[in-house]
Computed example of a mutant assay.
Amino acid sequence: MGTNLDVVAALLSADPISVDTAIAAVESQRAGAVVSFSGVVRNHDGGKRVQRLSYSAHPLAQEVLNRIVTELAGAKGAADPDGHPVRIWVAHRVGPLEIGEPALVCAVASSHRAEAFEICSELVERVKAEVPIWKEQFYTDGSVEWVGAGMLP
């Protein structure tokens, strides 16, 4: 990765993740903006009530996550307009999760807000679209559905 990108974390985690942890990890005295995202398990999907879910990751999921961060760094020049490194923390849960638990957490710190918002947004979209993680949703009516099962690296 470029010298102007400081990837604090790029994780797949069976343990709980938190936006507070992500923010604390990327904050610095040179950061004028810290943008975060926390995607949490909701109690509904497609008009059905969700009871809980479980995420499963392909063995190459960590490699894909690392590649996304590396490519994003290269595409964005990996430095804010003042030449300071952009700091990134990203984690996606695997395993069982309950309603309200964070499933995807990202934080990006930069000297300026525009870069922090742009990088955080693109990071979230690319993780959701490219990292081979599948969601098994358990509904309150007893049915189960897999989401993202067609995605392979």
Rank of each mutant, 00 (worst) to 15 (best):
Q29S: 13
T70C: 05
L65T: 05
D45R: 07
D20N: 14
G95E: 01
S38T: 08
M1Y: 08
S54T: 13
V94M: 09
K135M: 05
G39H: 03
A79K: 06
K48M: 09
D20E: 15
F37P: 03
G74N: 09
F37C: 02
A31V: 11
G74Y: 03
A114W: 06
E98D: 14
V7D: 02
D80I: 03
P85S: 14
A14N: 01
A107V: 03
S110A: 15
V105D: 00
A57L: 11
I119V: 15
A91K: 05
E101L: 09
D80P: 00
L97H: 09
E118K: 10
S54W: 08
R67Y: 04
G148Q: 07
V26R: 04
M1E: 04
V50I: 12
K135S: 12
R49Y: 06
V86A: 10
Y139A: 09
A33T: 02
G83D: 10
D6T: 08
S18G: 15
E145W: 01
E136T: 15
A107R: 06
E63C: 05
I119N: 13
V19R: 00
A14V: 01
T70N: 08
E115S: 13
C120F: 02
T70R: 11
P85D: 12
C106M: 14
G2A: 08
A25T: 04
S38Y: 04
V35E: 06
P102T: 04
V50A: 13
V131K: 01
H44A: 07
E118H: 11
V108C: 12
D82R: 02
I23Q: 13
I99K: 05
S36P: 02
A31Q: 08
K135D: 10
Y139E: 07
D20Y: 11
Q51H: 15
S143Q: 09
V8N: 09
I17N: 10
L97C: 11
P96W: 01
I133A: 00
E125Q: 15
G148S: 12
I119F: 08
G148V: 12
E98L: 07
S54H: 14
V90T: 15
L152Y: 03
V86G: 02
L123R: 11
F37S: 03
G83A: 08
V19T: 10
D45I: 00
E101A: 12
